[in-house]
Design a binder for these strands. Structure first.
Ligand code: SF4
Ligand code: SF4
Lengths: 132, 132
DNA sequence: CAATCGCGGACTTTATGTATCTATAATAGT
DNA sequence: ACTATTATAGATACATAAAGTCCGCGATTG
């Protein structure tokens, strides 16, 4: 029951992209250097963000990744869901019957966490990031 | 990033113990039957609950498990922490420095979930459980 | 064309979760 | 004291997921 490291990498990358002034594509090599991850692995993670519509990629020389939507809209939850998936943390016997009280409590608590993550946008704290 | 099945078993067992009228020890065999788990495996999980002080065990004939504290006090969070551990879901570079904004957000969201789990006591919904 | 760069699949390696088996220790009833 | 019962702990086996690598393909720039 932990976030995968991939989530960590995705969050840091997105934070960098949101905080960056320009809108030029940034190569995965450059992004990977800042977090000492192998570029190929980071690329695999960022592809998930592309498919989720958070960023877009440009192939070929001078290519890389850049934000797709408005930078003010990027929330923590979107990133986490793109990497970890949107399934519930609590998967019981399959039947998501709303009769079960245990199930309801677990879902409600999970929703409380997601609400906070949905409400917090990356741009809110992009300035607190140490200059790179 | 999912709760382990062990958490599920622990929650159901505790729910049963809280909902039960008597305070007599219940054998692991009986508890395991209700959830189709192997008794030895369930025993290993319940031992964690014992060490966490939630229940107590009685060896020997007529032994088993029973609640230790007051039945009104058992919260979801205690059980989950006993099984999954109390470590943060988001383990980054190790330094829990409060300067990092990302870290703060992740911890805050996690705390929101835990708050809900801490506030919800098992007894509140013990009656909603189907009679067994 | 040639160098650059993201994409995708296959693969290896760890780590964790799940589960069983067995031996040991403690207790109750006889 | 003896025996049946029951929790505990360790070893072991298996399954699944996470973490990371490798390589070839296709797209793009200059
Ligand atoms: S919590 Fe409810 S839905 Fe989930 S396994 Fe238990 S009874 Fe089924
Ligand atoms: S979130 Fe903050 S504390 Fe965690 S790894 Fe990133 S910089 Fe370090």
């Amino acid at each position: 029951m932990k976030y995968s490291k991939a989530t960590n990498y995705a969050l840091h990358t997105m934070m960098y992209l949101v905080a960056s002034e320009t809108n030029k594509p940034v190569g995965v090599q450059q992004l990977a250097d800042k977090q000492d991850v192998s570029p190929t692995y980071l690329s695999k993670i960022l592809t998930k963000l592309v498919k989720a519509g958070l960023i877009e990629s440009a192939s070929g020389a001078g290519g890389g990744y850049r934000l797709k939507g408005r930078r003010e809209d990027v929330s923590f939850l979107e990133i986490i869901h793109a990497v970890e998936g949107t399934a519930s943390l609590f998967d019981c016997c399959g039947n998501t019957h709303s009769q079960c009280a245990i199930h309801r409590v677990m879902l409600a608590s999970e929703e409380a966490m997601e609400q906070k993550l949905r409400d917090t946008k990356m741009i809110e704290l992009a300035d607190a990031l140490p200059r790179k």
